[in-house]
Design a binder for these strands. Structure first.
Lengths: 330, 330
DNA sequence: ATGAAAGCGCTAACAA
DNA sequence: TTGTTAGCGCTTTCAT
């Protein structure tokens, strides 16, 4: 099938290309008869407007870039779903970029994003990349950050106050006389782990105590499970807090291995959970972080930034969590 | 920052825009001195070529569309990772589209894809959408299908022979004297479920038997787990085959609930597993479907279709599986 | 080795 | 109501 352009349609319909343009853009100045003719021509030729050419002429692509860390998608998957659903409503396309480790690559991605002239970019990344973002801002690309609380004239953010979530949780346990609380992670320090630790520290400080239950998986361990299996032989805590359910599950399994009864001897809570948690026995108590909403709201904010004066919109949107007790806590 | 174009660079460097174009495209006819000047100008102005304009001029966008069913991403996530990794290598961008139920929406997506003038589209969808694909082919868009064995001049496919996988598995059990085998699903009939059933049927037929162990979750059950919990009270099988690990896990949990010992009293196998399987107790025996490779190979095939004569390349690529026994089988 | 100019397909101001 | 025309930013012959 030969490429058919707006000229072909104009010819076929016996009108000028401007008229065709008006028809496909739903202008209401076109007379019924001509509109009809044009539509028939479009139908007959199978014409589909070239979004690239439109993009050039209009200086906008109606596509936004989404940047997420490469990996499991078990968690980010929900974010993507939320984002995509809203994007669909506003007829935006999504260009997907994933980041691996390595600062160089993130620069490549940003370069790429600028070249592709997307209308905006939504970033979910556990590391805050202030410097890299500056490049984007310099080129006037509107940004929405998921998970970090930051903002300036061209940047909005949508997040959950994890620090406070952990603070409240830890406080509750401290009040209850439980003092041996640990936080586990399995990667380099990420932003959300930082927040969790801060929350715990604050809670301990409130009680005049010092928090030092920070568990980092040593490099020689392949997985959290391997580490915990060994670790739990010597240590036991009142409560272990993990970031994701996968880690919490690893702890549960390791605890079983060591004959530790959960939740009686040790309780476990995770911040983020996925559908797999619902299949676990015991099911992990968690904060119900609204991943889908994180994505959906981000995209919504983005459309706002793209339409309205950026000064008029709320640039920091906090979504709420809800602690959901399950079988891993008393 | 004002938009800087190739003209600005040309001015700054005191050359024509053609020369700038040559420099950014790595032409080797440009004299060292001028090249230097141009590069300095580019650097000074912070110029980034406009991919949209390039796309218009070159009639290609170096982006390909990826179509996947909306949902958990636990499985498709790996496919995406594979695809993205090789897309990166060949400098292709990925436009992500998800399909929900409803034929209408898939047509919207196809329309959208055609308008956006992507160079090709990779589709992973459990339903084969012959008719919809025809639209794409009519517009000469190269297509790679993941999971289905189909091909024609503009279509390639990358898949795993699930039918045969199930056939072999079922044969083994039949040989071992176990005859009560069931296949479970939780959605409308999808392509891979069809294949699984076909595989089972063939195996039974080989033995002169008829296969009728097809379990469909009735509408009134919210989840596989709810259904199985009831179902297993009355029925028990030698072997249950599930498509994904999540379903297999549901069966495991339901079996526990009913005091059925796995694998002694009932064995379970799933076709596709994710990282969560490794956390389960018992871990589900599975075929190690190479999801990542499915994505990576698809993208590789796509790049080939984009470069070479489509007649010269292998259009049906079968990836192999490997049955991996774990704790859910004897 | 470099420049001039046509063209990629479309939009939008301006004319008619 | 419709048509004409000048861009949008870049690539690529064809000259020079």
């Amino acid at each position: 099938m030969k490429r058919v352009t707006i000229y072909d349609v104009a010819n076929e319909a016996g009108v000028s290309l401007a008229t065709v343009s008006r028809v496909i853009n739903g202008s209401n100045v076109v007379k019924g008869g001509t509109k009809q003719k044009v539509e028939e021509a479009i139908e007959k030729l199978g014409y589909k407007p070239n979004a690239i050419a439109q993009g050039l002429a209009l200086q906008k692509t109606t596509t936004i870039a989404l940047v997420i860390p490469e990996a499991s998608f078990t968690y980010t998957g929900q974010i993507i779903n939320g984002l995509l659903d809203v994007a669909k409503i506003y007829k935006y396309n999504i260009m997907l970029h994933t980041t691996t480790e390595g600062i160089n690559e993130i620069n490549d991605i940003i370069e790429n994003i600028i070249k592709s002239r997307v209308d905006g970019v939504v970033i979910y990344n556990d590391k805050l990349m202030r410097e890299e973002l500056n490049t984007l801002t310099k080129y006037n690309v509107p940004i929405v950050i998921i998970g970090n609380k930051v903002s300036d004239s061209k940047i909005s953010s949508v997040y959950v106050d994890i620090e406070n979530a952990v603070y409240e949780l830890v406080m509750k346990y401290l009040e209850g006389g439980k003092r041996d609380i640990a936080i586990i992670q399995d990667r380099k320090n990420g932003y959300s782990i930082d927040q969790m630790i801060n929350g715990a520290k604050k809670a301990y400080a409130t009680k005049g105590l010092e928090f030092n239950g920070y568990l980092e998986i040593p490099g020689q361990y392949r997985t959290s499970y391997d580490f915990m299996k060994d670790y739990l032989q010597e240590h036991k805590h009142d409560l272990i807090i993990a970031n994701r359910d996968s880690q919490a599950i690893a702890v549960v399994n390791a605890a079983k291995e060591n004959g530790i009864d959960i939740p009686k001897e040790m309780e476990i809570v995770c911040v983020i959970d996925t559908k797999y948690n619902s299949m676990m026995r015991p099911q992990i108590s968690s904060f119900a972080i609204p991943s889908y909403d994180l994505g959906a709201v981000s995209m919504r904010v983005m459309t706002k930034m793209l339409q309205e004066n950026t000064d008029d919109i709320d640039k920091e949107i906090e979504l709420s969590y809800l602690f959901t007790p399950r079988q891993s806590t008393l």
